[in-house]
Amino acid sequence: MKKTIVFAVLVFSFTLSPGQDLTGKQIIQKVNDIMNVETSWSKSKMTIVTTSGNNRTFVSESWSKDRGEKNLVRYLEPSRVKDQAILMLNNADDIWAFFPRTQRVRKLASHAKKQKMQGSDFSYEDMGSGDAFINDYDPKRLDDEKIEGYDCYRVLLSRKPDSDLSYSQLIMWVVKDNFVPVVIDYYDEHDAQRVLKRLVASDIKVIDNIPTATKFVMYNKNDNTQTEMELLEVKYNINLDDEMFSERSLKK
């Protein structure tokens, strides 16, 4: 019995050991597990900061189910976009947008993911779509690096040939202690040396036992603008009916 306990402790400490020799694939799998919880709800504030200091703020609610495979986002503020909603199913392969002023639901093709979210520096694709890091990129571990005050794994994610995503590659810095990605560089589709955008995550809190970055800033190197995203409230593993992710729910 004692032997069993010692063995279990050894296995447990080995599994959690930050210094272990994880491959790029294993690191990204852990990132994916942390980012895609079974179900979640959040309320967030997005602020677009332009070079002229002309800021815009949006508040939205979002629901997610089946580890990010189903997503629904509904805008609460400002009045101009109130009740506009976006439904993404099958890891964002199917997208619908609802426009309350015309009561019209429009099916969007996946190319719409390249468009900016409300003019921000986040595209719909950047917001993540389920298992995209695993399914659309090949990971390769690079040299570890300290960044933003965290000891991090550094992983190169090269786009798979059959993927239709907009970036040729990503470089991700993942905190060794909790597998939260704190920095992601997004590279130009046609020039793998050119960084288009950088995402910096901060204010990591443990919510419902899940380490969660609650602040994000996307720096657009092209336009010299930035967009800040703050999670105001987050809940994980809540009860969500499949009906929540339907066209009917989009209109509510």
């Binding site: 429009r106 099916k107 969007l108 093709a109 996946s110 190319h111 719409a112 239709d164």
Partner: peptide
């Protein structure tokens, strides 16, 4: 309404 060869149709 849907998608074919990457185009919305």
């Amino acid at each position: 309404a849907g998608e074919l060869f990457g185009l919305g149709i």
